[in-house]
Amino acid sequence: MKKISLTVNGKLYQVEVEEDMRLLDLLRDKLGFTGVKEGCSEGECGACSVIMDGKLVTSCLIMAFQAEGKEIITIEGLQKEDGTLHPIQQAFLEEGAVQCGFCTPAMVLAAKALLDKNPHPTDEEIKEGISGNLCRCTGYAKIVSSVKKAAEYLNKGGK
C-alpha cells in the first residue's frame, strides 16, 4: 500500500493504493469515475483515456502510484455545475457523433487534448488526434465533424 495524492477534475484526493493498481482501477473502482471505460487493457482502444497534466494518456497502462501529484481530467470534469455542457460535448450531440457511447467519454477527451493545443485543426489533424481511440459504431465521420464544430464554438469564446 502506498499513499498518494492527486487532483481529479480540480479536486484533491489522498488515497491508499496497492502497488499493482492501475490508474484506471483507481479512477473507476476507488474514486467512482465510471465514465472512464476499459475496452482492451493494453492501451490499444483508448476507451480509458484521461487527460493527465495536459496530455492524453491511456489509464490502463499507468500505475496508480505514478499519478502522484498529477492533475487529471476525466469526462466527469467537463460539464459545468449548472449543467452546461462543454462545447465539445455539445458538438458531439448536435453532429450525431454518439452511437453506443462506450468510446465517447475518451473520444471527447481526445478532442479536448487536441483542441487545447491546436485550436484550428484540419480534418487530417483531427483524424490523427483521435486515431488512438477506436470506435466500432460511427465510422468516425461524425466525430471528425463534431471536433471541427467544437473548434468553431471554442474559437468564438465558448458557446
Partner: peptide, 12 residues
C-alpha cells in the same frame, strides 16, 4: 438529437 446522447457524452 439522440435521446440517450446526453448521458453518453457526460459519462453518466
Amino acid at each position: 438529437i439522440r435521446v440517450d446522447g446526453l448521458a453518453k457524452v457526460t459519462g453518466k
